[in-house]
Amino acid sequence: MTGPAPLLEIRDLSVHFARPRPTIFHPAEMLRAVDHVDLTLHEGECLSIVGESGCGKSTTALAVMGLQEPTAGTVLYRGKPLNGPGAPGRKERARIAQMVFQDPFASLNPRISIGRMLLAQLSLHGIASGSEARDRVAEMLTRVGLSPDHARRFPHEFSGGQRQRIGIARALMLDPRILVLDEPLSALDVSIQAQIINLLMELQERLKLSYIMISHDLSVVEHVSDRVAVMYFGRVVEEGGWKQVFTTPTHPYTRRLIDSVPDMDAVLAQRRELPPPAPVPDGARFSPDISARPDPRTMPEPSHLATIGPDHRVRLAGKAP
């Protein structure tokens, strides 16, 4: 390991929820939404977390944002913990990471005009006021592809794609270093998705942002990510550079996920073959076993993320050697 501390480090993060007990005679059950997750985000990178509903990817995102208190583990920003004693307050944290939400309809308060929403952030943080603040809002709206006079309008006057642009503007208003994108495209039409992807990629380069993208859409993930982590039942089962994960998908779950994507190229006679897996040590067994659905309430078997190639790790059964 060389160089400075990574921008963001998620260390051994767990979020467990108590499941409601059917009666008081039932034992308390824990739902392991996120279980011992380690992830690293480097400056300027896009780290994508993929998986299906309930795999813990959104809970991980909320924990990074400080919107979900972790059961155990730490999130470090440039080596300094963001949770636990001595962690920065809500206001300080807001300048570090911001979030873009999935549903462009629920993510804007219907009663507040766009301009007022954006100005409130600037005045809360004492960044700017008066005409300077209004100039900043106008500049930001232009930057995300809207027009400055949109500030006077209310959310219901915008289309889904425009709302998502407003959501991005809101997230960028405090000039954060990290954007957490929680399924930013899944509520949008295909043609709008392309616009938003292009906008996000352009902003990342121009503003030197780092992204954590939560998504179930593997085509988009492959297109924009630098690194990819695949989550399954609260755990990371495969992780690495986009090329490693997509050209040598190795964990059976990753392979199943990629294989399930309905692919339009398949009809053009040349059915896409699933790329070959990377070699794993002899006798190694993948964890968990995906032929049976794991029970998120029971203690999972001991397992570890084993390095199987440069920048490529998969979860194998057994303790780390």
Partner: peptide
């Protein structure tokens, strides 16, 4: 649980402020 309330939290607004400006008007 609507994300605009989460967004206000993430932007650093206090709970009192969120209840007053995000929830009450709705």
């Amino acid at each position: 649980s609507q994300s605009f309330v989460l967004a206000a939290k993430a932007a650093g607004f206090s709970d009192w402020n969120i209840m007053r400006t995000q929830i009450l008007p709705n």
